[in-house]
Nucleic acid binder design. Structure first.
Length: 121
DNA sequence: ACAATGACATAAG
DNA sequence: GCTTATGCCATTG
């Protein structure tokens, strides 16, 4: 437990987001909490902001805690994100919100996460 | 080390 | 329900 501390928060965020299964969504605060920083939701959002095109990180599955898309990026627009999520079977409500009670990600498999963290080094 | 930044979260009006 | 204000936290210049 003293070897993989070199990974930046950003890298951990990427790894964790990659583990989100198709058809599920997670909030920024949720991701941060799983990484051990329950208040670092903003940092998670910033991490996703720096994702390069063609990355295997399903950034579209990360939304805010209200089940709504809060994005300000010009490259990746909210419309695009909604479209991508709908393709995965996620249905948006009339308020452009998803039902977190149904689509909220249960969380990572800690064994898998640990393996991923080591493998990424 | 300090100030600014940002795809959040929560409380208050 | 929406808008505004405040708090949080890692990264960057």
């Amino acid at each position: 437990m003293d070897d993989q501390k070199k990974l930046s928060f950003f890298e951990k965020v990427y790894i964790l987001v990659r583990m989100i299964p198709e058809g599920k969504v997670a909030s920024y605060g949720q991701i941060a909490a799983y990484l051990g920083h329950p208040r670092a939701a903003r940092t998670v959002g910033w991490a996703l902001h720096g994702i390069p095109e063609g990355s295997d990180v399903p950034w579209q599955r990360v939304i805010n805690n209200k089940g709504r898309i809060t994005i300000s990026n010009v490259e990746y627009s909210a419309s695009l994100q909604r479209d991508l999520l709908e393709e995965e079977g996620i249905v948006f409500g009339e308020d452009d919100r998803v039902d977190l009670r149904v689509y909220r990600w249960d969380g990572p498999d800690w064994v898998e996460l640990e393996s991923m963290l080591r493998g990424c080094l």
